[in-house]
Design a protein around this nucleic acid. Structure first.
Lengths: 250, 250
DNA sequence: CGAGCCCTTGACCGAAGTCAATGGCTGTGG
DNA sequence: CCACAGCCATTGACTTCGGTCAAGGGCTCG
């Protein structure tokens, strides 16, 4: 299922494989020398195994660690007072979790495992200290955070301008792309989230998600069977996901 | 029009008033000692006056500085290939501009002055260096960035769950709150942006923005006259903006 | 004082939400 | 092993919010 986090064959003496993982996220493509590597290594404390439905951190909790997803999938969920929820993002291996709390030092969302999952834990205080000593790390940290901002802004764009079919195309295309980059198949995969989660994330109701998937299947774009998706026409999906087909007046 | 950026009466010897301004944003409420202040002071290079429509930075430009808005208002706009645009955010005095470029080192949006405006300029490279030496500054920087992320996520929530009336209520309420915090009136203000800009930001067309404002006026919630807005019932606006009145199934 | 914006208002229409029925799966207990 | 409960997903019929199209009014600037 995952030969994903297996690089850094050249680096010996790492305390655990989790350090490799966080290094991969935090330092690539920045260069890092063995000394600095070891320094970062010592602060990546441990990993946590989680099972489906487990909460990695909950809204309101004090920010103590950042996490790097190693394996499995997560969703970020915010709850309004009435208990209705909103999925603000999905997270796959190699992505960073916990940035939501940087602003207030308290988490603003729940992070929930969608599958069996596994993360590395990096105490933020320690990370800040090391970052202050290792310029490339500091820079890379800012970069990763910046990418999170870019992703959010892209999502804002989608939600304010795209219709249901476009949203689903973009969603599937992004998912495919992320799996591909993880070295898995980008053409055939199990989606880890429910229709409900997808709908919440895309600002659609579950029925619309379902109908849209059926339509895409009719059109020969994909094949769906429950949580299994096969992309039949990746080229066309790419076009649909990127074309400037505005809903609402441009 | 603005007695906004006038604090720090106790700090003498600052090279320019712009340093005060950026200090206010970057270091409050963190403590900073005079030495560190002076160090930060030296990197805040200059300020730029802009007039309505001027572009502070454009999409694709290399990231060189962060900016702190001192006076006036800005919008962030992204353009898709076809030239249709999307307003991703509005920025008032005291807010930071340019974070969009942290991820790729290139700006991903245009920042356009909506009014006569004024900013401080902080070279990012220098800022990183000083931040590495001043832990409280580094921490504060992360905090501000985190707040940007939180704001984006809030916006995502609005766009995926709120109807037109709720969006406008939230928009007006936020604007009122921001002006209040700047020491201006939160009950009577000129909105610096066009209906077009508002609509783009909220995922609505201009006609809907207009109609909704008219409806709110009918209801005695506000008074509108072109760009001038008077909040007539701030309490009710607050309720409308915060109540959990879901569009789409909770 | 006329052109060009920006904004408002009305009439109409369609995409997506709501409500409701049905059809698998999965797991549990008799 | 079957039956039944509880999800989750699909599909259809109907409704509605907000987008589209069109006309007109008011400001500003040249």
């Amino acid at each position: 299922m995952s030969d994903v986090v297996e690089p850094f064959k050249g680096l010996k003496g790492s305390r655990n494989d989790c350090a490799k993982c966080s290094i991969q996220v935090l330092c690539l493509p920045a260069t890092i020398n063995p000394d600095d590597f070891e320094r970062l290594n010592t602060i990546v404390q441990k990993r946590r195994p989680l099972k489906r439905g487990d909460v990695l951190f909950a809204s309101g909790q004090k920010l103590e660690h950042l996490y790097v997803a190693r394996e499995g999938a997560f969703k970020s969920v915010v709850y309004n007072t009435e208990g209705d929820s909103q999925v603000t993002g999905f997270h796959l291996p190699g992505e960073i979790l916990g940035l939501d709390a940087l602003g207030t030092s308290k988490h603003t969302c729940d992070s929930v495992a969608l599958t069996t999952a596994d993360v590395c834990e990096i105490p933020l205080g320690d990370l800040e200290k090391v970052a202050a000593q290792v310029p490339s790390l500091q820079h890379q940290l800012l970069k990763i955070i910046g990418q999170t901002i870019n992703r959010d802004q892209k999502h804002i764009e989608i939600l304010s301008k795209k219709n249901a079919h476009e949203r689903m195309s973009i969603f599937l295309h992004q998912l495919s792309e992320r799996y591909r980059q993880l070295g898995r198949s980008g053409e055939r995969f199990m989606i880890p989230m429910s229709r409900e989660d997808i709908g919440s994330h895309l600002g659609l109701v579950i029925e619309t998600v379902s109908r849209t998937l059926s339509k895409m299947q009719e059109d020969g774009l994909i094949e769906v069977n429950g949580r299994e998706v096969i992309i039949r026409d990746l080229g066309r999906l790419h076009v649909l996901a990127h074309e400037t087909a505005p809903r609402k007046s441009a």
